[in-house]
Every structure is written in C-alpha cells, then in structure tokens.
C-alpha cells in the first residue's frame, strides 16, 4: 500500500487531495521500514464533533516520528489512541503484531508496559517527591529491592542530566526540569515505544535544544521508537526521521526532506509560517473550513 493509497482513505467523496505528483511528493519511506505502529481507518467522534473520520498512518520502527497539524486536528488524541487510553469508534491500531483497540482495560494495563508516555505538562504526581514519582513504575511493576530501585532511578536521572532533585516536589521544578523528570519516569521501564506530547511547549529556546539532545541521545542509546506531537517546526526539522502531517481526515507522511520539498499548499503553509516572512492567510482559511 502506498502513501497515496492511504491519502484517499476516509475521504467519503472519493476526491483526491490537491497533492501534486512528481518529484517532491511525500514518498514512501514507510513502506521500506518495518512499521511499529499502524493505525487503520480510525474514526472517533465526541457527539457531533468528528475528530477522526477514517484516519490512517504508520510509524516506523526505531524512528523519531513527529506528528504535526493544526490545533484541534487531534494530534494528542492520536497519541492517546496509540496508548490505548481512549478507544476509537471504528478502526484498528496495530502495535507490533498486537491489535489494541479491542482490548479490555485489564489487558490494556499489561499492554501499556510496552509504552512510555511523556505528557505535555509532565503529569507528575503533585503529592509525591521527584524520586517517588520516577520510582513508582518500578515499585508497582517489578520486584526490585529498595537499593536496586534507587540505583535505577539515579541512573535515569543521570541520563536526563538531573542531580540532587530526589527530595523536591514537582511543583518546585522549572518547566524544563519537569520535562526531564517526566522523561526519566517514562523511560525507567525501558519501553519499546515512547509517546511524547508537545515536549517543547513552554520551554525557552535553549531548553528546547537541551530536550532535543536528550531525545536524540535516548534514541541512540535505547533504539526506542519515538512518536512526538510537536508544534515547533524548526525543532521538528532538526530531529524528525519521519513527519506525519494531519490534514483534516487524511495524513501526509514523509521524511523531513520530502516534506520541505512538498508542494502541498497546507504543508507549505505550515512550513512557511514557521519561517520569517509574509504568509498567505487564505491558505489557513481554506484549511479551517475543511476541518
């Protein structure tokens, strides 16, 4: 199945999107790499509000994939679907060779051990110290001794560049430090997939680069498959192996180069908006009406 086949899916009118073919079209790197996560024909609606109406996308094994798209296009929802935190109305999600949308909650609890998630605000438990927060997954799911847990936690702290934070409460940390603590907690169980929701929101440009370096280093060391929701186009361009662009009901996928060369007007608009210079507002109006 090619990317262009996917583009047609879920489009009830059968009309193809205005994607020009030829050189520069998002190509098919996905079909060459083994997919780790494969979402097929997802439909999800809250009342009359259709979030997804037949969305499909794939995320390559061991790659850093960035999901981009307009606010409200359901990027974070897609992450939660992959984490099995919510279930689609229709459609399948395959993680490896496991289909996750039909799992009862008890099985989902077991499944989620394969997945780490870094939430936007960190989702650290306010009432526990930083150490307790990071140690929690080990205490809950392993039989490690107190000493082993301590070693493991400090190992993770070291990996994300934290020191002497054990006794602090999450409320006492800066945004960047919270992200690091949350990253340490997400990675402590050595998941095969790391889902990251807006890792750079609320960070200053230097902190952004630091977190980027951490993520790249992490992938280098562990080979974890990363799926990021990212608004920050420059940082997406720096770290992504694959970009998944949610436009309305469809997704466009490709490498950074393919996306940069894309002539799809919405992709262009997104990329252009992030660079200095004038933009054409009419493109955005067009996109909103489609959403």
């Amino acid at each position: 199945m090619t990317v262009r086949d996917r583009l047609g899916e879920g489009d009830p009118t059968g009309a193809r999107p205005a994607t020009p073919s030829g050189p520069g079209t998002p190509a098919t790197i996905l079909d060459e790499e083994p997919a780790h996560v494969d979402a097929l024909g997802l439909r999800l609606a809250y009342g009359a509000n259709k979030v997804f109406d037949g969305l499909s996308c794939r995320f390559a094994q061991g790659a850093i994939s960035c999901i981009i798209g307009a606010s409200g296009s359901g990027k974070s929802t897609l992450l939660k679907l992959i984490a099995c935190l919510i279930k689609p109305d229709f459609g399948d999600i395959w993680v490896g060779d496991q289909e996750i949308t039909c799992m009862p909650e008890s099985q989902a609890m077991v499944f989620r051990r394969r997945i780490g998630m870094l939430f936007q605000a960190g989702a650290l438990l306010d009432s526990m110290t930083v150490f307790e927060n990071v140690a929690l997954p080990l205490r809950e799911k392993t039989r490690l001794t107190e000493k082993e847990i301590e070693e493991e936690v400090h190992l993770q702290f070291e990996a994300v560049g934290l020191d002497k934070v054990d006794k602090l409460l999450p409320g006492e940390l800066s945004g960047g430090m919270r992200k690091r603590v949350a990253l340490a907690r997400a990675m402590i169980t050595r998941p095969e997939i790391l889902l990251v929701d807006e890792p750079f929101s609320g960070l200053d440009p230097i902190a952004v680069r630091v977190v980027e370096a951490l993520l790249l280093d992490l992938r280098e060391r562990t080979g974890v498959t990363m799926i990021l929701v990212n608004h920050d186009i420059p940082s997406t361009m720096r770290i992504a192996d694959q970009i998944v662009f949610i436009v309305g009901r469809r997704t466009l996928s490709g490498s950074v180069e393919e996306m940069q060369q894309s002539e799809d007007r919405r992709v262009r608009a997104f990329i252009d908006a992030a660079s200095p210079g004038e933009i054409d507002p009419s493109v955005w109006q067009g996109q909103e009406s489609e959403l």
Binding site: M117, F119, A123, P137
Partner: peptide, 17 residues
C-alpha cells in the same frame, strides 16, 4: 485536577489503575 493535568492518564501509562 489530577485528571485535568493528565496525572490519571500518567498513572494508566504506568499500568497503575
């Protein structure tokens, strides 16, 4: 507020009910 700040989802992700 734990729900609003995704702390409950965070627990679910750690396989904690």
């Amino acid at each position: 507020s734990m729900n609003a700040t995704e702390q409950l989802d965070g627990l679910r992700m750690m396989s904690v009910n």
